[in-house]
Computed example of a mutant assay.
Amino acid sequence: MSQAEAFETDFWKDANLRKVWDDIVPGEPRKTIPYTLTKEAIELYCKSVGEDHPIYFDEAYARTTRYGGLIAPPSIHILLMFSCTPADDWMRSPGTVNAGQSWSYNIPARPNDVITLQARALDKFIKRERLFVVHDNVFFNQKGDVICSGRGWTIRPM
């Protein structure tokens, strides 16, 4: 079974393990795990979001581009966010609402890149009886190059 096939799609499966509001400590690094991005995972992601540009599938075409080979679409960070975090990560909590995000893309991820994530909560606060967390995320390849970085705002479940 490939990593793409092994990716868990039942997001409620480990809900009881997830960290809760009191466990979120601003400034504390989140536990993350390296993830090897395969060509199959890129293809499966592209298929699931309706992306069909040949730079993601066709090696011969991709070699003719400025990238010199296959790349992953920039939005692959969505898959990477879950692939690089363990089942008990607070970002995986069912009921989490994305309240906004801002991303910067530096270089494309490529098949066989080993992706690592540095992530943390920056702040947490309560506003109008809702629990908000501001967080940042930086994805690196195996060379230590930044693929993309972003800041997000989420509303946490009560």
Rank of each mutant, 00 (worst) to 15 (best):
M1G: 13
S2A: 14
Q3V: 11
Q3Y: 10
Q3G: 05
E8L: 06
E8T: 12
T9V: 12
D10I: 07
W12L: 15
R18E: 02
K19A: 05
W21E: 01
D22K: 05
I24K: 00
P26Y: 06
P26S: 15
T32F: 08
T32V: 13
P34H: 05
Y35P: 02
T36A: 00
T36E: 04
T36M: 09
T36F: 09
T36G: 05
T36R: 09
E40D: 02
A41W: 06
I42W: 01
E43K: 00
L44A: 03
Y45L: 01
V49I: 14
G50M: 14
E51K: 09
H53F: 05
I55L: 05
Y56M: 13
D58L: 13
D58V: 01
A60C: 12
A62E: 09
T64C: 10
T65M: 10
R66E: 08
R66T: 08
Y67K: 07
Y67S: 14
L70H: 02
I71A: 09
A72M: 15
P73T: 08
P74M: 12
S75W: 02
I76M: 15
I78L: 13
F82Q: 15
F82C: 08
S83V: 11
P86F: 00
D88P: 11
M91N: 05
R92G: 08
S93Y: 01
T96V: 15
V97H: 08
N98M: 14
Q101F: 06
Y105N: 12
I107K: 10
R110M: 15
I115E: 13
T116Y: 01
L117R: 11
L117A: 10
Q118R: 07
A121F: 04
A121G: 04
D123C: 09
D123W: 06
F125R: 14
K127A: 11
R128Y: 03
E129W: 07
E129K: 04
E129M: 08
R130H: 07
F139P: 15
F140S: 13
F140P: 06
D145A: 15
S149T: 06
G150I: 14
G152V: 00
T154H: 01
I155K: 12
I155C: 04
